[in-house]
Amino acid sequence: SPTVSLAELDHLVQIISKSHLETCQYLREELQQMSRQNFQQDEVESYQSKPREAMWQLCAVKITEAIQYVVEFAKRIDGFMDLCQNDQIVLLKAGSLEVVFVRMCRVFDSQSNSVYFDGKFAGPDVFKGLGCDDLISSVFDFAKSMCSLHLTEDELALFSAFVLLSADRSWLQEKLQVEKLQQKTQLALQHVLQKNQREHGVLSKLRCKVSALRSLCSRHTEKLSAFRAVYPDIVQTHFPPLYKELFG
């Protein structure tokens, strides 16, 4: 593992936290101001009565918006833009949705089991029309368990960078380069956890989250393929081009 000075780790923490805050889609202050209003029953029903393809399209648009912020986050991570373009794309294709799921805990209300979506807080019922109840409930469970870790913004920023810089993704050309960046990020994450006096268990809990994220993303891909098999034209003509590039 690389030798990194404490000063270098502090610098890395600063850069990655700043990148996270600049690109996190919703600032803490905005989140506090957001009315914690949940969708009313009639609104929930109106989402449920949308045709399956319309609900899929709406979610694809929302996911794509969130992913655009993750791309900006990646670009600001020290060293990411020094990787070859193949590897930048490999990392984003594999990791951008994972970071969206990580970031979801910032807009998730554990008490009401709801997530900020399309202007209000939505429970799993809102997404019934997608026809992926099992995936949706896993995504909600994941958000809830991320929330229970009560990560600070610094910790969340570093964990997001760690996920994005996964050196074990297939098709990387300069695996070693990515490995170095990921190891540094992990050291910075450990450094922050220590500084914040978090209990030892947090890091191993975060490691478990990495495999949970992979499973969520591969299940998303499966659901998309099943949807595409039935509605190929809808995906082709109505889904955001970036979404198709990433998951097609």
């Binding site: 791309v71 670009k75 600001r76 833009m81 794309i89």
Partner: peptide, 14 residues
């Protein structure tokens, strides 16, 4: 392939 992603990566960070 990956035209948009390429574009997003090339746009300077604002």
């Amino acid at each position: 392939k990956h035209k948009i992603l390429h574009q997003l990566l090339q746009n300077s960070t604002s």
